[in-house]
């Protein structure tokens, strides 16, 4: 590789990233528009952010979403990690194939169907719909994503480390808690973040499974968007984008710092 990059490649990169980012960028820019009309620029203003603060409906929806997200992501991480361990460490148990199918199917199942089936289930067992049904639904569909993330890490995991622990007298359970989990926690954390983001993002499943008093932010945004584009929604979206972007960038930088430290350690070792 020459380190130089051909014109064709530059063009495809520029075009690709412009396509990915320009829409988001316009949304952010117009959230600072003084005009009520979203497409006419009338000068810089933060008026919509102040409005937002006083919009009780939106703030309440945001609070519901955050609670659902934190709770469902945590439970989903626990369940998803257990499922990943079961599938990657226990070769044989009754119904293993069924379990694999149940983990992978929700990943590609259209959201309308997952939402519909969960709602019909909650109706059938006569459970009052609201905060808890949304949370249960989110746990169910996000835990499968956690399983996939953790499982792929477990499959690349150096099994001789677990063998070594057992060889040194650690029972399988001790091995899991003292060797395996401490080493795969970045994947578990990534699984949590994915589950949390999916929960924050979800409109369809929440719409099906929610009940009175449990309107989530995406549902609120959706109902307003259907009435037309408003700068206030732009402002909400900008805040959400800022939160997520900060999270992703910080994680990436931390990872990079870890890699740099690792490289330095290896140089040190080579010199030792």
């Amino acid at each position: 590789m020459t380190g130089r990059i051909s014109k064709f490649n530059v063009v495809s990169l520029v075009f690709g990233f412009a396509f990915l980012y320009l829409p988001i960028l316009t949304l952010v820019v117009y959230s600072f528009n003084a005009s009520k009309l979203v497409t006419v620029w009338a000068g810089f203003s933060t008026v919509w952010y102040r409005e937002l603060w006083h919009n009780r409906g939106l703030m309440e929806a945001a609070w519901v979403t955050l609670r659902v997200g934190l709770l469902s992501a945590s439970v989903a991480t626990l369940l998803g990690t257990m499922a990943a361990i079961a599938l990657s460490r226990y070769r044989r148990f009754f119904g293993r194939t069924l379990m694999t199918g149940m983990v992978y199917a929700p990943l590609v199942m259209p959201e309308v169907i997952t939402g519909l089936s969960l709602l019909l289930f909650f109706v059938a067992i006569d459970m009052d719909r609201g905060f808890w049904t949304v949370t249960l639904a989110h746990i169910s569909f996000t835990m499968c994503f956690v399983t996939v993330v953790v499982q792929s890490r477990l499959l690349t995991f150096d099994r001789s480390l677990e063998d070594a622990a057992m060889d040194l007298g650690a029972t399988p359970t001790v091995t899991l808690f003292q060797v395996t989990l401490p080493l795969i926690w970045p994947a578990v954390a990534a699984g949590w973040m994915l589950a949390f983001t999916l929960s924050l993002d979800d409109l369809v499943i929440a719409s099906f499974t929610t009940g009175p008093g449990a309107t989530t932010l995406p549902m609120k945004i959706y109902s307003q968007v259907r009435l037309g584009v408003t700068p206030e929604i732009n402002a909400v979206c900008t805040i959400l984008i800022a939160i997520v972007a900060t999270g992703v960038v910080v994680t990436t930088l931390l990872n990079k710092r870890r890699l740099v430290r690792q490289a330095r350690d290896e140089r040190l070792a080579a010199g030792a």
Binding site: I24, I221, T252
Partner: peptide, 29 residues
């Protein structure tokens, strides 16, 4: 570059679709 591709994936699906309404509508950008 990899991070830049993944970043939109983490931001809300709904927001990304919504952003296009303002661009594509008849009096849009």
């Amino acid at each position: 570059l990899l991070m830049l591709v993944i970043l939109p994936f983490w931001t809300s699906f709904l927001i990304r679709v919504y952003a296009w309404i303002a661009i594509l509508k008849p009096e849009g950008l």
